[in-house]
Nucleic acid binder design. Structure first.
Lengths: 340, 340
DNA sequence: CTGAAAGCGCTAACAA
DNA sequence: TTGTTAGCGCTTTCAG
């Protein structure tokens, strides 16, 4: 590969001049500049961006660390980030944590070692301390979509999950459901990963005088399979719920499968609500009623936040993104006979 | 950030020694090594991988360029590549062409300028010449899943699409269908992007004495919407087909939607077959019969091929991956009354 | 307007 | 066993 020295030699000038001519900075004689440009073209000169990064101390690369890029939710996220970053001349280095905190920590360190200019950190496999530790290093990092509204993780692009949970409760209540179950991500005895989504639902339910029956709170790990398992358990109860809220669409799809296996018709005998509105949600059987999160807007915000921070601007977290309910065919009023 | 010089100074040695001690190469006195390690730790030394890349002339980064990473198919692809690459100490730089040849070309150039060690090129927005041009540069590049079996694009990880198309025809024929339509990606009057998938089907159909009726060959652009449009057109015909083969799952899902809109029951009145077996396929209504491509295996092969080429090995393309048919609920024998 | 020189952080001969 | 020196390719003062 031709270097700047090759071009310099061919044009009969020095490397510094070539650099100036190519970058357009400083003033270079029209003729020598033309000659340099010509030589560069002839030699198919392409700047070595690694060398440039070393001197410029910036790589024009940002890191995006997600739980699992094969997950449809994160695929949409990745797309949005790549688009937005590219438009600003940045490229994106992706990393999957696979939910492994230790891996997540390593990945973050590696990104830092590779001198990415900044990183966008999505929850899952990234302990908050790890994010904080990297941030303390001076590496700009924006937390995106974290359920815990940790002010020290700033700036952050947030989603109002609480409002999302409320939306679900209001919808189900309006339909006439009272025996509502939830399948949430979190270990049975541990922290609820989707804490706020459930809390929002709980608040509204309690306010309506029909508090959530904790016996109807099941746990999954965000996978379709876990949703199917929890759904089966719930549906096998002596008096099964008339509606199930799964805290993400994958689990909701699992619930749909469990209902099908149990011979229970959705939405006639059971209403199901998901969360996220991934692409799949519109095409399940029946199409899923769910809480829509505008991933393109969210990630554009996050990327923009990061890019602005990179350019030295003092940025602060924008207001959280408000989700909206999208009603499809998986919810309906409960059957008259099945009311409590 | 602490550099190797800071560590050297702290440990009272020279940078070269630190480098040796840290890399484990050469022989360093046990004590000085221990001292160096300690200083490095104290100073939270992290090697600057950009600097290292410059001297080592390798970045331990590979580029992956796909059509659109938001597309569920490519999301699975990306996941597999990232996994495989990481395990070998490589990181992945993603790029979306969005089907734009010009963009694809630029992206490839940029990846080269960033000195990626190699790239995996998936079809879509990447003109073969562009791939060839980059390969001519000396940059290892493996073409993956290209429909055109271009021997100059080697090494390549291929899929036997022809066999896949045959599988579909055999399945449909065995079920008793004769009036089979296809929705393929490609402009009406242009090249068929999914050429081989259709050819495979055609071969078998012709061999069985029921050649494909070209009036039943519709075109889409691989999107769900295009599949729905083509499906609607097909279903509105005076004598609609009893089976539709869409050359990818997204379009097949669109066909499913079109059938639902037209009040046509699947699989009773219409059989639908897709191609790819993306995650969505198992969860549509009804679940889609489709041709399965093992993306994890395919991409592991592609990545491995690239990595081996990087280590100087003379690699050659492995035999194409054989797809398999996965029967789900969208296909069944045609209704007695609707036979031709 | 152009050249000389230094430096980004690290590695790799080759000496000592 | 450790230090010296040079160099990876580029940018950026500072002289000339």
């Amino acid at each position: 590969m031709a270097t700047i020295y090759d071009v310099a030699e061919a044009a009969g000038v020095t490397a510094a001049t070539v650099s100036l001519a190519l970058s357009g900075k400083g003033v270079v004689n029209r003729e020598t500049r033309a000659r340099i440009l010509q030589c560069a073209k002839d030699l198919r000169y392409r700047p070595n961006l690694v060398a440039r990064s070393l001197t410029m101390r910036q790589t024009h690369t940002i890191g995006l660390v997600v739980l699992n890029i094969g997950n449809p939710f994160y695929a949409e996220v990745a797309l949005a980030v790549e688009r937005e970053a590219r438009r600003a001349g940045y490229r994106v280095l992706f990393a999957n944590t696979d939910g492994d905190d230790e891996l997540g920590r390593e990945l973050l360190e590696d990104l830092a070692a590779r001198q990415v200019d900044g990183v966008i950190a999505m929850p899952g496999g990234l302990p908050p301390e790890a994010v904080r530790a990297i941030a303390a290093t001076g590496l700009p990092i924006v937390a995106c979509m974290w359920e815990e509204q940790d002010p020290t993780l700033s700036p952050a692009a947030e989603v109002d999950f609480l409002a999302g949970g409320r939306l679900v409760a209001e919808h189900l209540l309006a339909l006439g459901h009272t025996r509502i179950a939830v399948v949430a991500d979190g270990r049975p005895d541990g922290t609820l990963q989707h804490h706020l989504r459930v809390t929002g639902l709980r608040e509204v339910l309690a306010g309506a005088g029909t508090p959530l029956d904790t016996a109807l709170l099941c746990h999954g790990d965000s996978s379709l399979e876990s949703g199917a398992g929890a759904g089966a358990t719930l549906l096998a109860r002596p008096t099964p719920p008339t509606a199930i809220f799964a805290t993400n669409d994958l689990m909701a799809t699992g619930v749909l499968a469990a209902a099908r296996d149990a011979g229970i018709r959705v939405p006639d005998e059971l209403s199901v609500v998901g969360f996220d509105d991934i692409f799949l949600a519109a095409h399940t059987a029946p199409p899923l009623t769910t809480v829509h999160i505008d991933k393109a807007v969210l990630m554009a915000t996050a990327t923009d936040l990061l890019l602005r921070a990179l350019s030295g601007e003092a940025v602060s977290s924008p207001p959280p993104l408000l989700p909206s309910l999208v009603r499809r065919a998986s919810t309906a009023p409960p059957l008259a006979g099945s009311a409590t």
